[in-house]
Simulated assay, not measured.
Amino acid sequence: MFFWFCFFLLLLPVHADVMNLNNDMPTHLEDATPIDEHSFDIQYSAVLEKKDPDVLRHRPNLRYGATEDLQLEGEATIFSGGNEKDSGQTDLGILYRLNHSENYFPEISLSPVAIFPTGKGMDSMLYSIRVNLTTTLEGNSKVPITQLHFNYQLEHNSSASSGERTDRSIYTFGFGRLIFNETALICDALFESEREKSDYTYLLETGLHHHLGKKYFIGLSIGVGLGASDVDGQGLLAFEKQFD
């Protein structure tokens, strides 16, 4: 009897942070909830993109909970491998939560971002706005067990040169589910379209977000590209540390 009681305790969802999602931690899917007030979150992810030729995408990320509803964020994207053209950018933005989720009504946040051209061959400043929706189906906003997420991001290049895209829309839909004590399963589908092209890009992702203890986290995911995607598949390994 004692064994089964201990086993049951291990399955109880006691840590909500594995349900807090961020770009490449462990997939592209993001939730609408900022990190805890006055806390820092440092992340690093490495993604191997299977294409011709293969590319390794590095993404360091820093987030700060300025208030209960406001999160500040800085992120860099760096590519290595191939010809390294358009090999990186730096994003500075915020996430602002508009409401708290109740009775299945989604939590909504807005994320305006300024994107600086810091990679090889890049010279245009970009701007984006992302809308995040998160609905808690099981548990509550403090300790969620099952959540649905939707992201819509519009990216605009006001000074696009020949061959550069002017507008890009990205739709991401998925869910997070606490499957073990401090381990979440994340699945999503990403759809991308560009104004200049009639082709559409799809990406399907599945990943795990796990708390290692002492506020260290690991993210693992795999993805497959469909449609006009130049990425056939990808694998991700990410690490995260939170500071109060």
Rank of each mutant, 00 (worst) to 15 (best):
I222K: 09
R168P: 00
D188K: 05
L154K: 14
L148G: 05
D36W: 03
G235K: 09
V143I: 14
G65S: 07
A189K: 05
H210R: 14
D24P: 02
G139C: 07
N103W: 14
Q153F: 04
D91E: 13
R97D: 07
H100Q: 15
E30L: 11
S162Q: 14
T206P: 00
Y64L: 13
I108F: 08
F175R: 01
S221F: 02
S128V: 04
F150T: 01
D86M: 10
L203M: 00
Y200L: 15
Q71H: 15
D41A: 10
L126S: 05
Q43Y: 08
A32H: 02
D24S: 01
S111C: 10
G88V: 00
S80P: 03
D232G: 06
Y152N: 05
E192N: 13
D232E: 10
T172D: 04
T166N: 12
D232H: 09
A184Y: 03
L154R: 15
Q234V: 11
F175Q: 04
H15W: 10
R59Q: 04
L98D: 12
A16E: 09
D230Y: 11
E68M: 13
I129S: 05
E138K: 09
G213T: 02
A238L: 07
I222M: 10
V231S: 08
L98P: 10
G174W: 00
L48T: 02
G119Y: 03
D17H: 08
S109G: 08
I35Y: 02
G207H: 03
F239V: 07
N83K: 15
Y171I: 09
N99I: 09
E75S: 08
S221E: 06
H156D: 01
A66V: 07
P112V: 07
G88N: 01
F3V: 09
V143Q: 09
F191E: 05
T135A: 05
A114G: 14
G233R: 04
S193G: 11
E194S: 02
E73K: 14
S45N: 08
R165Y: 13
R165I: 11
T134D: 02
L237N: 00
V55C: 06
S101C: 12
E84C: 01
E68F: 13
K197H: 14
E194T: 03
L21N: 03
Q242G: 12
F116Y: 10
N157D: 09
I145Y: 05
Q234H: 15
L110V: 11
G223C: 03
N23C: 15
H209N: 15
T67Q: 05
V224N: 03
L48R: 02
H156N: 01
I222F: 14
T146L: 09
L11F: 04
D232K: 05
E240W: 09
M25A: 08
A76N: 09
A189N: 07
N151T: 08
T146P: 03
Q89N: 10
F8W: 13
G82D: 00
E73T: 11
M19H: 04
L137W: 06
Y202Q: 01
